[in-house]
Design a protein around this nucleic acid. Structure first.
Lengths: 151, 151
DNA sequence: GTATCTGCAAATTTTTTGCCAGTAG
DNA sequence: CTACTGGCAAAAAATTTGCAGATAC
């Protein structure tokens, strides 16, 4: 996707939510939709700072929050306690390496029917979303990993 | 389960991991296995303090960490960023209320077969565990909830 | 022109750590 | 006895906030 097109998408989403289009938000948005590393706020800051040297960490936090509010990003809290951001907002799963912390997308999804089965089990609860996180060891860390771990 | 029995379980787990049995760890362990509220570290502290008035928050953090290390508790990081502890260590799912933050267990589980399907999709990854979190609105908050939310 | 936004620094919140006395084994 | 612990307070890490000048529209 061309950068101008994405900026237009961002502009529209921002306007729809009563926010203004700014260079900082655009840079954060562009970085998030370019990367697959599911960065922490600090990682976003360090990268975006290459485009906008004067940007502050606080602004990155605010921009990320704005993007999440506009539905252009997702905030993910992983089992290791790390908060990370994802430029994808479609329902998809993640897998996290217990050794190096890397997070990747899982191509497939669990069948809708299984979710409906679960929803039925919590009938007194109105289920509106879900999140599935696999954990284990990535190709690079697997050799050093214990034969069998749980978590 | 009688409290003495649980203390014995704790004692054995601690010894197996080279740790000592202490009043503080026992109180944290007892509270965790008694409750269903999936408390934060601070909530554990506030409750355990009723049994051991002199206990400190730092000790609660240390005890929780020890219990997790011994496999007697699980640390859960939820999508709202809150870190919570669960006395259950068997694989099970959670549902969290977007309004009040309450977390409950889900009785059922997704079929093992579906997980295996997912594992196959990340063939370069050794999957050792997973975590599924439903979100929505609990019975008390549902009336005030938006007609349809996403997250 | 004006309400919103940024950058900065300070404030909060959450979690971790160092140290010494206390205690389990 | 002696190493492991707990309590305290301080530190560190993560995130949020107040404010004044800058900027989108």
């Amino acid at each position: 996707m061309h950068s101008d097109t994405r900026d237009l998408v961002l502009r529209r989403a921002l306007e729809r939510h009563g926010h203004r289009f700014t260079e900082q938000r655009a840079a954060v948005h562009r970085f998030l939709s370019d990367t697959f590393i599911h960065p922490t706020a600090d990682e976003v800051f360090l990268s975006v700072r290459r485009d906008i040297p004067g940007i502050s960490l606080a602004t990155v936090y605010k921009s990320l929050e704005t993007l999440v509010g506009c539905g252009l990003a997702t905030k993910l809290s992983f089992s290791d306690g790390s908060a990370r951001y994802d430029g994808r907002t479609d329902p998809h799963h993640h897998v996290r390496c217990l050794e190096c912390g890397r997070v990747m997308d899982v191509p497939g999804r669990i069948p809708e029917r299984d979710l409906q089965d679960l929803e039925r089990q919590v009938s007194d609860f109105m289920v509106t979303g879900y999140r599935l996180e696999l954990s284990g060891y990535c190709a690079e860390c697997a050799p050093a990993a214990p034969t069998r771990a749980s978590g």
